[in-house]
Nucleic acid binder design. Sequence first.
RNA 1: GGUCUCGUGGCCGAGUGGCUAGGCACAGGUCUGCAAAACCUCGUACAGCGGUUCGAAUCCGCUCGAGACCUCCA
Length: 491
Amino acid sequence: MVETDKRLQVFNTLTRQKEFFEPLNPPHVGMYVCGPTVYGDAHLGHARPAVTFDMIYRYLNFLGYKTRYVRNITDVGHLENDADEGEDKVERKARLEQLEPMEVAQYYSNRYHYNMDQLNVLRPSIEPLASGHIIEQQELVKKILSNGYAYEINGSIYFDVEKYSKDYHYGELSGRKLEEMIPFTRELEGKSEKRSPYDFALWKKAQPTHIMRWPSTWSEGFPGWHLECSAMGSKYLGKVFDIHGGGMDLIFPHHEAEIAQSIAAHGHQPVKYWLHNNMVTINGQKMGKSLGNFITLNEIFAGNHPQLEKAYSPMIIRFFILQAHYRSTLDFSNDALQAAEKALKRLLEAYHQIDKIPAAETSSVNIHEIRQACFDGMNDDFNSSIVLANLFEAVKMINNTLIGTETLTQDDIGLLKKTFDDFLFEILGLANESSSDNSNLVNELINFLLELREEARNRKDWSTSDRIRNRLLKMGIEVKDTKDGPIWKIL
RNA sequence: GGUCUCGUGGCCGAGUGGCUAGGCACAGGUCUGCAAAACCUCGUACAGCGGUUCGAAUCCGCUCGAGACCUCCA
């Protein structure tokens, strides 16, 4: 498969170690990633898994796998807490904005898609809605019930964790033991109809005020949160599939519950490799909805937030995310984004210089080594940070060949360009953001002004040349003089 | 309280038991009427204290500090 001679290794949360990636049915790969609950705008914390698993999806495809990528949209409102009472999140939003719940879901789905497109995140192969798979979820509940791992109370169905624990290991993904979880039960005794505090809902009977509800044999109600991923994952990828991804904060209880549900229903593990991205932090603390310290992508792209000194484009955000390894926390700050902006610019400008490199008889640097290092980085649990570091080495090479301190053959120049095309654009998905949608008229006008300015400069008429440059700058057009003549750009 | 992770030079951020990523900033230089930009060059850092080892930032222990999960959260 392709040129890489080393095999891909991935860190599996389930086994807590790196494992060689071997798909169940090569060349096919099934990957499921938890998508957003659509009741608010996407923030940086949503961008991280989207970009991370987009990179993984891209790399798997690059390696020649046929990947089916499923990422759900959670549009069934779920309760504010799993402990039962409380308002549905989507309904609450709908009430506040005086909309139909599905209107809320649609609205934020659209905005999510728009943001992801901006980030150059490829659309998944299938994007199922939880509300469109109520039947499948009910079927799963029935199966778990008939296998004896769930019980019904007042029209609601709960997963019987204690019963399950006798036969299987509840907590294997998050590294917990049930005994350790028992002492620290929250103060919800008496209030809940659940037998044990760590049981979770498979089906909830709807309160009279609850709008999002569906008929079932047990009650008019709605499915439990953990159920949709189990139901949709097995529907589209099979009862066991290769990769399941999501944020680390979903490991418990969400993914733990998914495993339990699937095993209770089908008797075996649903997923071979569990992959989890780490959190985005701000001031060292997790950026999250409940803490209210999140910054939405729209705010970042517009520079419209007190924490931001300026706007940062989607590609800067993508670069910023990929500069860290996906399993490390990533700390947000203005300085970090500014550094990312400059770094990305340097990378892209060097890329555009590749065509100007004069071919030499021999190469003084080894492009194959860099290319291989990029593969090695990706193969080592998708270490995009290593890939970027090597691309920056390539930047140095490009610039050095341009000033004549290094040389490259025509073949190596081609390989260099291919390496950027493959890794920077295709795998890391960092697209060129050109703001050159100016009309021809503007171009011609500016070029004419610069022509006049050049004539003035040749006469050493500095006052005229500076006047032109300053006036243009006032209009937001920056002029820079280079050896090859002036260049300009709209700020 | 339980489980777990992390602590790298001014900032961000990789990493392996010995060959000391990368980016940003700073500094020096090239270029240049000036300016700006661009480019080149440049930093032996790894919380503290012990231990293992020929050798540890990388392994072990302790201390200090930060954080995550245990309730919804990507």
